[in-house]
Design a protein around this nucleic acid. Structure first.
Lengths: 338, 338
DNA sequence: GGAATTCAGCGAAACGATTCGACTGATCAC
DNA sequence: GTGATCAGTCGAATCGTTTCGCTGAATTCC
């Protein structure tokens, strides 16, 4: 069921069939219809591999996701969803590559075998070997998050520093003088995870700027860690009355720890964060948070990537998302001391 | 950077390079090493499109996921993760196709253009047009869930009927005489969603078998619906003391409704369900539930699919998962009436 | 020592599309 | 009437692999 078969059955040459399909040269209406009829009858679709070989492009995008073994955060999930949808809208296909920091088999298959026209890289490190590999191959790519020196590359990112700063501002405005940052894990921080680093910096800046006391603690990405982490804060720093966090996965644990400590939110304790809207609304009470626009980010990443593919010489595109903080019910004035 | 370049630089023919790489014919150790050196130096990888064209297979699997717009359930997410990992382990690539019940552009691109060697179909309907399309194309596929007449096809599924039955048994054993089933939405049921149908049947069977009162309600896949649904049950059927559910997405809402009704779990109300372990542990108190082994199911689906691809004439494979109910803290004896 | 076998390697033919140059009539301008 | 233009079509080359058949040379067998 190849183009030759169609050509034979409609009594024309292969090239005519191709032109009828692509419209790149004129074909008389009569033969066009004849060809189309045969195609419809046989249900013919051009073979993607043959087309890719000849055209030198695959009409496929690659999405490099963190190995799903350790669960993705809600924002990452939404980001993937945004990429999937936007890729589909652009009439492109999407190849998934689960791969960690160092480029492994899957990454190499996709990228070395030129199975994709471009790549979206999630969970980037400040210094990332995969980025260098892609640059070496001159394969278009877009990162979600920035490396330490993002000049000359296309990326989308969330301004964690600014957002954590705003959380601190908001809490300080409410009178809180002792604020804890529940960051992501110390390991991630050590491995050069951008958001963890920038949250840390943004927190430190805001805390000095507002003249309040800040304590930063690392916390693994699961509810048990969140619970333990908050218990630690409450016992080691009983003066703390508010938490700011970027650790989405820990949130249910944070909630549980506050509950079992008998700390009413927002009556006796406040919490603000940066997370996917969905997660914020699932918190109890609903979480005052900067809602990371992950779906939009995914769509934007696809747009940028398509642009880099079609116009490799255009200047790189970048976008730093700074979503507003949505006031919900998890923050309130500092409680009167008793 | 193609095979010809490698051949030239190592002073052999293209075919020799190919044989050196594949090992399908013997190549002298000396030239093999010479070739390998050149390959390593230039970082050559065979072009996937050319190879696919010649070999007639793409070394790629397709995964048809529900459109991510409406959020996937935790079990679905885990299933995707299992498929991603297993595909990677099998040294295959994975193409994602978001597509609803009727086969749309994306599905047609992947399947019609022969971009994949086989397909895994999620969220199957009892009567599914995509299944017929795949059968027509004679493209190997595996479904997650069964159609109404699954004879002759490969599939993996969870035995929702049996599991809901066991939930009812467990609750009846504890003395509950009035049990509600929180099913998935009426729309899904109407559209021929297998799990919804089978949960309904299993519930009806178990309820008559145990001689208890059962009320079944449909509920959309979100927390607001879950909350509303439980409120509805509590007011319309105040005699109900326990809930069984397969609706993962509604769980946080169920929890919230119970909380605000002042019903202590498991002291005054019991709840048991079928859901991903992760979700069960996030419930408060932790949920007594049959943990759907979604990661295993994903891996199994990939195994089955690979088998269908490599041995098209072997009999189809199928596996019905019936995970045990994990006793946690959300079920207890029926409260004394007051 | 000649015949049979094995080993290494080469050349050419696919795979299924796209695209370029060339050809054929028709139409048009003058 | 002649030359130019143009729409419509065809044949052949090409993309980068894999694989089949063949050929010398080296080795083995009686």
């Amino acid at each position: 069921m190849n183009i030759g078969e169609i050509a034979r059955r409609s009594g024309v040459s292969r090239s005519t069939v191709s032109y009828a399909l692509s419209g790149k040269r004129s074909v008389s209406e009569a033969t066009r219809q004849r060809i189309q009829a045969v195609i419809d009858e046989l249900g013919y679709r051009p073979n993607a591999a043959a087309r890719a070989l000849k055209e030198g492009r695959t009409r496929t995008l690659g999405l490099v996701v963190p190995p799903p073994r350790r669960r993705l955060t809600p924002a990452q999930l939404e980001f993937v969803a945004g990429v999937v949808e936007a890729t589909d809208r652009a009439d492109l296909d999407l190849l998934l590559s689960p791969s960690g920091d160092d480029h492994d088999r899957s990454f190499e298959r996709i990228v070395g075998g030129r199975r994709v026209d471009g790549v979206i890289l999630m969970e980037i490190r400040l210094d990332d070997t995969r980025v260098r590999r892609l640059q070496g191959l001159r394969l278009p790519f877009v990162t979600i998050g920035r490396t330490a020196r993002p000049q000359g590359m296309s990326w989308v990112d969330v301004d964690y520093a600014a957002l954590i700063g705003r959380c601190v501002d908001h809490l300080a405005d409410l009178g809180h003088r002792h604020i804890a940052l529940v960051n992501r894990s110390a390991e991630l921080l050590a491995s050069g995870h951008g958001p963890a680093h920038r949250a840390k910096e943004g927190f430190a800046d805001a805390v000095t700027r507002r003249g309040v006391e800040g304590v930063e603690v690392g916390c693994a990405d699961d509810v048990a860690a969140g619970e333990a982490c908050v218990q630690g804060i409450l016992s080691a720093h009983p003066e703390v009355t508010a938490i700011a966090t970027i650790n989405e996965a820990a949130l249910p644990g944070v909630q549980r720890a506050l509950e079992s400590a008998g700390l009413d939110v927002p009556g006796r304790f406040s919490i603000a964060g940066v997370t996917a809207r969905h997660r914020a609304e699932q918190f109890h009470p609903q979480l005052t948070a900067a809602d990371v626009p992950a779906v939009d980010m995914g769509a934007t990443a696809v747009d940028f990537l398509v642009e880099r593919i079609t116009e490799p010489d255009a200047p790189p595109r970048r976008h730093l998302f700074v979503p507003p903080i949505s006031l919900r019910n998890s923050t309130g004035p500092v409680p009167a001391p008793r």
